[in-house]
Computed example of a mutant assay.
Amino acid sequence: MTTTTIAVLVGSLRRGSLNHQLAQLAVDSAPTGVAVTIVDGLGEIPFYTEDLDSPDALPVAASALREAVGNADAVLLVTPEYNGTLPAVLKNAIDWTSRPFGEGAIKDKPVAVAGISAGQYGGKWAHDDALRSAGVAGARVVKDVTLSIGGAYQRFADGGPADDAELVTQISALIAELTSAVAVAA
Rank of each mutant, 00 (worst) to 15 (best):
P110E: 06
V39N: 11
G104R: 13
I6G: 03
S180H: 10
F101A: 08
G135D: 13
A126Q: 08
V78M: 04
S63T: 10
V69P: 10
Q21T: 04
L77W: 14
R155Q: 10
G16R: 14
D73P: 00
N19K: 10
S117Q: 07
A105T: 02
P31A: 15
Y121F: 08
I38N: 02
I94H: 14
M1A: 12
Q21E: 13
L86D: 03
L42K: 14
S54Q: 15
S148Q: 14
A64F: 09
E44T: 07
V182R: 10
A139V: 09
L174H: 12
T85M: 08
G115C: 07
V184G: 02
S180R: 14
T85E: 05
A114W: 03
Y121A: 05
S180N: 10
L52N: 06
E103G: 00
R14V: 04
A176F: 08
I175N: 03
Y153A: 04
G11L: 05
V8T: 01
D40Q: 15
P87E: 06
L52E: 06
L131S: 04
T179D: 12
V111F: 10
P46M: 11
Q170R: 15
G70Q: 13
T179G: 06
G104M: 06
A62N: 04
G84F: 11
V184H: 12
D28T: 04
G41C: 07
A157K: 03
A176H: 13
Q120P: 00
G33E: 10
Q24C: 05
A126P: 01
A74P: 01
S117D: 04
R14A: 06
G11N: 03
H20N: 15
A23G: 01
P87H: 10
I94S: 08
S172Q: 11
A30T: 02
P161Q: 03
A139R: 14
G122C: 04
S148N: 15
D56P: 02
L13Y: 07
L167W: 10
W125N: 10
